[in-house]
């Protein structure tokens, strides 16, 4: 390959990288400078933290953040427990209709809950769970994706280990907990990171099912906050945006390698 094409390719790669990061860089720029510098770029623009303060006061971010964390954790905990049990049953137990059950589980990979918002809303209204954490969480707790990933992993665990545990007198639950769970740790990490970023960012279903600050997550809060009618300026919206993505972004930067590898691992299966 001649030198020129190489230079062109490399600069294209970096240009694309810059474009991909640009919105975030810009948001940081707008958030730490006074409003009049939102579209004026100058090295000497004065720095300020006022936008963050104002954004923080303008919307109940703390409340939203608590809601998001609570919802994400409820979903993740539920998923880990239920998917482990279901995956074990589908991977290692012999029972009538196992194939059918697995097919029914896999259906959810295609028919994701957000597509069924109309009926799921009715169901949750019937259960009196509108505007609660559980309302947001329940449709996602049984995750076909989680069951599928864990089943694949459990199938690679040697049967001998399970037999040995059985001879030692372990119950089924103890076998799962002591044999399967420790061996599937990378899968759990991968699934957890994917699940956290999915539910931290999820919007449509929480929008439908929440109506007050009591249960509204950050994404829904941001959509109200950013609405043009609310009359806040760009710098403050940028600050708010950064507040809302901050925790996830920090998590991402800290666990970057794991994130990428988790998504990769989850993708290959």
């Amino acid at each position: 390959m001649n030198r020129l094409t190489r230079i062109v390719l490399v600069s294209m790669a970096w240009l694309l990288g810059f474009v991909w990061l640009f919105p975030l860089i810009y948001a940081i720029w707008a958030a730490i400078h006074p409003a009049e510098y939102a579209t004026k770029f100058s090295l000497f623009a004065p720095l300020t933290m006022d936008n963050f303060k104002e954004a923080w006061n303008e919307a109940p971010f703390l409340r939203y953040m608590i809601n998001t964390v609570a919802i994400t954790l409820i979903i993740l905990t539920g998923q880990l427990v239920l998917c482990t049990l279901a995956a074990y049953a589908l991977a290692r137990m012999e029972f009538f209709g196992r194939g059918l059950m697995f097919a029914l589980v896999l259906m959810q990979l295609m028919v994701v809950p957000e597509i069924l918002i109309v009926e799921n809303y009715q169901t949750l209204a019937g259960l009196n769970l509108i505007d609660t954490y559980w309302g947001v969480a329940l449709p996602y707790v049984a995750s076909a994706f989680g069951i599928f990933l864990l089943r694949q992993t459990f199938k690679t665990v040697p049967q001998d280990l399970e037999n040995a545990a059985k001879i030692e007198g372990c119950s089924v639950l103890a076998i799962i907990w002591k044999v399967y769970v420790p061996l599937a740790k990378p899968t759990y990490l991968a699934f957890s990171l994917v699940s956290i970023s999915y539910h931290w960012n999820n919007f449509l279903w929480p929008l439908v099912v929440t109506n007050t600050e009591k249960s509204r997550p950050l994404t829904v809060g941001m959509s109200i906050f950013g609405a043009p009618e609310s009359g806040v300026d760009w710098s403050i919206i940028s600050a708010g945006t950064l507040i809302s993505v901050g925790p996830l972004l920090i998590l991402f930067i800290l666990f970057q390698r794991q994130f990428v590898q988790s998504f990769m691992q989850a993708g290959i299966k």
């Binding site: 694309l16 990288g17 991909w20 990061l21 919105p23 975030l24 810009y26 948001a27 970023s197 931290w200 960012n201 919007f203 950050l218 994404t219 829904v220 941001m222 959509s223 950013g226 919206i237 940028s238 708010g240 945006t241 809302s244 993505v245 996830l248 972004l249 991402f252 994130f259 990428v260 998504f263």
Partner: peptide, 15 residues
């Protein structure tokens, strides 16, 4: 390249 994937659609849509 990967950063947009982990950010919430709603927040980046504001930008």
């Amino acid at each position: 390249y990967f950063t947009p994937t982990v950010l919430p659609m709603i927040s980046v849509a504001n930008i």
